[in-house]
């Protein structure tokens, strides 16, 4: 192992943040309660006062707070995003996670010393793109899209240096290059890129139909869960659709990402940070997952043997995948 590993954990609420920090997160990522962050779900996120308290709590416990402003600025309304940057810096963010190149430019010019990370939403997946952000704006870390193989990540990590790389290792899976998927826009007019929500709950409805649970997004039936079958949030890319007379998952099966078995290899190739997805998840989930991953990382750091079975059991009986990391998707 060549680099110290950082466990980056989700914090959807102040209570979730304290739970993640207490469970052993090296850093937590969170966002303001508006469309500036890509998890703009009702009841989630932080107001200005809560963010300051969160930063204080995180620092008191020796962890870092990464504030995400990772949607794309709307023309004519860029002040909302710039104000977000100003307030995040004032709150004491250890890093800002940004996607919009204009906002990156604003943050760099206004706060030359502020550490900046490039969000997965920016979809920087080539050495050229990463080098541009690194050399032009001093981006210190890039969060890589979940569409790369481990060997691609190895090459990118080597070429991105001294810019660090961060990869998702656990949680829900966005199967396209983030920041470029328009499915939700087509179906609902709202997207993670502009409004911070994919398949937004305002457009989701469930109904019971002769023992099955039918889930719709924007009026389109996306999934039908038969009795006893595990349910899921009806994210558009994970639905079952009928095409050419056959019903199947067109894009990807509704599996969770679980890259536990790849942790040693990812560490070996120089990835700096492992990210857990799930700002929308509850404290019960956060505490269990963070604790287990922190234990694994600490074990790896001393050359011990990681208990993969414990980590595998975290997918709650749902099927999991190593995603594109091994090009295992169909």
């Amino acid at each position: 192992m060549t680099t110290p590993l950082e466990l980056v954990c989700p914090a959807g609420t102040p209570a979730g943040l304290r739970t993640a920090v207490d469970a052993g997160a090296h850093s937590v990522y969170c966002g303001y309660r508006d469309e500036t962050n890509a998890r703009n779900f009702p009841g989630l996120n932080f107001d200005r006062a809560e963010m300051k308290e969160a930063a204080a709590y995180t620092h008191e416990h020796g962890a870092k707070i990464l504030i995400a402003l990772n949607t794309f600025m709307r023309a004519g309304c860029t002040d909302l995003w710039k104000r977000g940057v100003d307030d995040a810096v004032a709150a004491g963010a250890d890093a800002l996670i940004l996607a919009d190149v204009g906002l990156v430019d604003y943050a760099r010019k206004t706060y030359p010393k502020q550490r900046l990370h490039l969000s997965v939403q920016a979809a920087a997946a080539t050495p050229e793109a990463i080098a541009f952000y690194r050399d032009r704006f001093g981006i210190a870390r890039v969060v890589l899209p979940r569409v790369l193989t481990v060997e691609e990540i190895a090459r990118l990590t080597a070429q991105a240096a001294p810019c660090e790389t961060e990869v998702f290792v656990f949680g829900g899976l966005c199967v396209m290059a983030e920041g470029r998927c328009m499915l939700s826009s087509y179906a609902t007019g709202k997207s993670p890129n502009m409004t911070g929500v994919c398949s937004p709950p305002s457009h989701v409805s469930y109904r019971e139909e002769s023992d099955a649970l039918v889930a719709c997004v924007g009026g389109f039936t996306v999934e039908r869960f038969e009795r006893g079958e595990a349910a899921g949030y009806p994210t558009l890319c994970k639905g079952r659709f009928e095409a050419d007379g056959a019903v199947s998952h067109l894009f990807e099966d509704p599996v969770s990402l679980n890259a536990v078995e790849l942790l040693p290899r990812l560490a070996e190739i120089g990835v700096t940070a492992f990210k857990i997805e799930g700002r929308q998840r509850g404290r019960a989930y956060i505490s269990t997952v963070v604790r287990a991953f922190r234990k694994a990382i600490d074990t790896m750091a001393v050359g011990g043997k990681v208990d993969y079975d414990e980590l595998r059991s975290l997918t709650e009986g749902q099927r999991d995948t190593v995603g594109a990391y091994k090009k295992a998707w169909r």
Partner: peptide, 30 residues
């Protein structure tokens, strides 16, 4: 319990305004 996990395993069901349910769940969590 985590509300999502209960929903996935069908131990909990919801209907009506999904956005309102999520808001309530998140507020209770916090």
């Amino acid at each position: 319990y985590d509300g999502d996990a209960l929903f996935f395993s069908r131990d909990l069901s919801i209907d009506g305004d999904t956005e309102a349910v999520l808001a309530l769940r998140n507020a209770i969590e916090n």
